[in-house]
Nucleic acid binder design. Structure first.
Length: 656
RNA sequence: GCCGACGUAGCUCAGCUGGCCAGAGCACCGCUCUCGUAAAGCGGGGGUCGUGGGUUCGAAUCCCACCGUCGGCUCCA
């Protein structure tokens, strides 16, 4: 008979199988009222009313926005309410698949007519009715045969049921929102909340096309996205966060700050304006400095290289779809989508010795990839971009040291942008089923990556089988100020490309024999374009001083003060400070307003008093008055802040 | 690429049940004001209504095609 261990260690014993609800009642009636499900042994989430027959560690799940399990349950159940509403409003709708996802849920379905956002209000009204009726979610289990029979004639649900059976399901379950047989039902593994009444804080978010099982050649379905929270407050907070993300959209801020533009006739290609290019150059120069300190050499390889090279590298066979090609005098060429083949060509010039290794070859390499038009997104996903790329040619024995060194470098770099350890996630992808190379070399490479993370004190999550066919990899994901994830850095171990079958890179070893080096492909920022997009959204355009395109603007109060303002601007620029002067004949209030909406880091007001004293009256973007400073003190202050790469404490907080 | 929505001045948007010469605010240019911490006043220029076709006496408005943008295109019941 089940012995139930509660999270606080307390043990409850029951003479017969109990439901989660009965356990909750045994603890207290208040908890029983609030419970929406239980978690068993920290793994399986189960309906409140399903029996527990074995001993278990049990957690009662209540509807709380902070509990991912609670949200998962609410959203999964809310997907049913959405589906029921749509089925009722649009007879003939066939349901396909409706899981909870990160920020809500979706339901894919075939509807008799296309749905648009104009239908949301009607759907939400119907959902509200279902919630208000507070009908129970009732589960009925059927033996596989019988369950399958119930789905007969429904292509999607029959497919789902068959897949479930193939995966070893012992029964096929259906959930109805109400009484089985009487109310609407859906094939579903569950679990669900006890009744529809707890699903009040929901919203239909968007509609999009999707394919059955994500397969382009399969049925085109309508996907409706929605979300659900434990209460209206949670929903509201989420919606405010979405608003905040919208305000921070790099496409909007890029335009407002005059950083770059994209235009119709060159989809996926960025035109960098002076201020955007200032950020770009600052990033490049910064990374250049960091890798120089780590013993890298920098190179530049051609943008257009002949088909024969890409055939040897394997790109022509595997990556052709994404390559821009061109021809001249009957020879075919391709714009480089990656820098590695070029770097190997440099490595192969002359005879390399083991003494040359590790050779760390870096390039700010301009790459072109013909991304699908539908995948383009501002400067985050483009067709022309620059990677802070490098390839480390080394021996197998050098892999651990090189990877560990890279992880340390990467951590330092991320920290300078305000992404501390708590904002870096590491994913470690291990050997896939289809791969090249011996198991021994995979063992060594994987151990080296895991060990490097430990040395650099970076926690990682293993993604088994997700590695490239030629080697394992680490992927580094940043968590921005709105807690969104962006994969940026990576390091991959590659035995393939330098091999005799591919580009045949060689060095002479201590033994006088020729050997193939191992190549570590690595990047920290990833694409500079994308990284700038991330920074724009992370900082909402209010860059730390060292990155800011306009670090200070001098605001003369009247035309009389313009000469002093110009002199000041010149002094600041000579001290390597990005300074401008606002010479418009506007009132001071207007100039200040403009300086702040332009997100200039600091502005210096100069009037009669400042001219006389040779000082400035300083204020920052946030509107804090910083008092009167002499010119020298101002320069010293700004230079110190740039040198520190100081991040304003408010900058990274945001609304997230 | 596929599905859906959208495309009007540099920006944000109105007009779009077909019909006065296509509008507003901001920005821009000119003039006046020379001003002390988030928008001074007046005047002016600017749009082949994404592109191309069609329907119509008449198209920003209706239809078709194309281009582009935005959202989405599994996290396997």
């Amino acid at each position: 008979m089940p012995r139930i261990t509660l999270p606080d260690g307390k043990l409850l014993e029951f003479p017969q199988p109990v439901s989660g609800r009965q356990v909750a009642e045994a603890i207290g009636p208040g908890l029983a009222r609030k419970a929406i499900g239980v978690k068993i042994d920290g793994a399986e989430i189960r309906d409140l009313d399903r029996p527990i027959t074995e001993d278990a560690r049990l957690t009662i799940i209540t509807a709380k926005n902070e509990d991912p399990d609670a949200l998962w349950l609410l959203r999964h159940s809310c997907a049913h309410v959405l589906a029921e509403a749509v089925c009722e409003l649009f007879p003939g709708t066939r349901l396909a698949y409706g899981p909870p996802v990160d920020d809500g849920f979706f339901y894919d379905m075939a509807t008799p007519r296309p749905l648009t956002s104009d239908d949301f209000a009607t759907i939400e009204a119907k959902m509200a009715e279902i919630v208000k009726a507070n009908r129970p979610f009732s589960r009925v289990d059927y033996p596989c045969e019988a369950g399958l029979a119930r789905t007969a004639g429904d292509k999607f649900k029959a497919d789902n049921a068959q897949r479930a059976i193939a995966k070893g399901a012992k029964t096929i379950s259906f959930y109805s929102t109400g009484n089985p047989g009487e109310h609407w039902e859906d094939l579903c593994a569950g679990p669900h909340v006890p009744a529809t009444g707890v699903l009040g804080a929901h919203k239909v978010m968007s509609v999009a096309g999707a394919y059955w099982h994500g397969d382009q050649n399969s049925d085109q379905l309508t996907r409706i996205y929605g979300t659900c929270f434990a209460d209206d407050k949670g929903l509201k907070t989420y919606l405010v966060r979405l608003e905040e993300a919208k305000k921070r959209d790099h496409r909007k801020i890029g335009r407002e700050m005059d950083l770059f533009h994209l235009q119709e006739d060159n989809p996926g290609q960025v035109f960098w304006h002076p201020k955007g290019w200032s950020i770009y150059r600052t990033l490049e120069d910064y990374v250049r400095g960091r890798i120089r300190d780590r013993g890298y050499v920098e190179v530049k390889t051609p943008s257009v290289m002949s088909k024969s090279l890409w055939e040897k590298s394997g790109h022509w066979a595997k990556y052709r779809e994404n390559m821009f090609t061109t021809a001249s005098e009957e020879r075919e060429f391709a714009l480089k989508p990656m820098n590695c083949p070029g770097h190997i060509e440099i490595f192969k010039q002359g005879l390399r010795s083991y003494r040359d290794l590790p050779l760390r070859m870096a390039e700010f390499g301009s790459c072109c990839r013909n991304e699908l038009s539908g995948a383009l997104h501002g400067i985050m996903r483009v067709r022309g971009f620059v990677q802070d790329d490098a390839h480390i040619f080394c021996t197998e024995a050098q892999i651990p040291g090189e990877v560990a060194d890279f992880c340390r470098l990467l951590k330092e770099v991320y920290r300078d942008f305000g992404f501390g350890d708590d904002r870096v996630l590491v994913k470690f992808s291990t050997r896939p089923a289809v791969r090249v190379g011996s198991d021994e070399s995979w063992d060594r490479a994987e151990a080296a990556l895991a060990d490097a993370c430990k040395q650099a004190d970076l926690a990682y999550e293993v993604r088994a089988g997700e590695g490239a066919f030629y080697g394992p990899k680490l992927e580094f994901t940043l968590l921005d100020s709105l807690s969104r994830q962006w994969q940026c850095g990576t390091i991959q171990v590659d035995y393939q490309l330098p091999s005799a079958e591919r580009l045949d890179a060689q060095y002479v070893g201590e033994d006088g024999q020729k050997h193939h080096p191992v190549i570590l492909h690595r990047a920290i920022l990833g694409s500079i374009e994308r990284f700038i997009g991330i920074l724009i959204e992370h900082f909402a355009g209010k860059f730390p001083l060292w990155l800011a395109p306009e670090q200070i603007r001098v605001l003369p109060i009247t035309d009389e003060h313009v000469p002093y303002a110009r002199e000041l601007g010149d002094r600041l620029r000579r001290a390597d400070i990005r300074a401008t002067v606002d010479e418009n004949s506007e009132k001071l209030g207007a100039k200040i307003r403009l300086a702040r909406t332009d997100r200039v880091s600091y502005f210096a007001v100069v009037g009669a008093q400042e001219v006389a004293e040779r000082t400035v009256s300083l204020q920052n973007q946030a509107g804090e008055k910083l008092g009167s400073l002499a010119i020298e003190a101002l320069i010293e202050r700004l230079c110190a802040e740039v040198a520190d790469k100081r991040i304003a404490p408010t900058a990274a907080v945001g609304a997230g």
